[in-house]
Amino acid sequence: MTEQEIRDLFLNEINKVAPDIDPSDVSDDDHLQDDLELDSMDILSLVTALDARLGISIPEADYPQIETLTKAVRYLAGKLAG
């Protein structure tokens, strides 16, 4: 999976969790909680969706690694690479 595909998937899942967020409005460094105003339940839903879509486990200790689009793409690419 390319980084662009991971980016698109991540933005799609954010939009499913928070339909009021337009993926085209999310910048690379927007913080999920501070800028996009996702709450802890939204984050948990996002992590669960990523687990289901990608078949990877994201432990709670790693949540800071997905707090922005840039970090999430890097983290998820690493997890998918093994």
Rank of each mutant, 00 (worst) to 15 (best):
E37N: 14
L36N: 10
P23Y: 08
D30Q: 13
L38I: 05
L69H: 04
R53E: 15
L54A: 04
P23C: 08
E37H: 14
P59G: 11
L44W: 11
D30P: 14
R7E: 13
N15H: 10
D22N: 15
L44N: 11
V73Q: 01
V17L: 01
E60S: 12
L50A: 09
D25C: 00
K71Y: 06
L36C: 09
T70S: 12
K16A: 07
D51G: 12
D29S: 08
V26R: 07
D62P: 07
L44G: 12
V47R: 09
D51L: 10
A61D: 14
P23L: 05
A49H: 12
R74N: 13
D42L: 06
D35K: 02
A18F: 09
F10C: 07
L11C: 02
S27V: 12
R53P: 09
I21E: 01
P23D: 03
A18Q: 13
R74S: 15
I43R: 11
I66M: 08
D20C: 11
T48G: 15
D8I: 09
R53Y: 10
F10T: 02
D8M: 08
V47S: 08
I43K: 11
D29E: 10
K71I: 03
I21S: 04
K71F: 05
G78S: 10
M1W: 02
K79I: 09
L38G: 06
R7V: 03
F10R: 03
D51N: 15
I58P: 03
R74C: 11
K79Y: 07
F10Y: 14
I14V: 07
T70L: 07
L32E: 06
D22A: 06
V17Y: 04
L50F: 10
E13Q: 14
N12C: 10
Q33M: 15
K79Q: 13
T68S: 03
S27Q: 14
I6N: 00
L54K: 00
L76E: 07
S40H: 00
M41D: 14
N12A: 13
L76G: 10
I58N: 02
E67A: 12
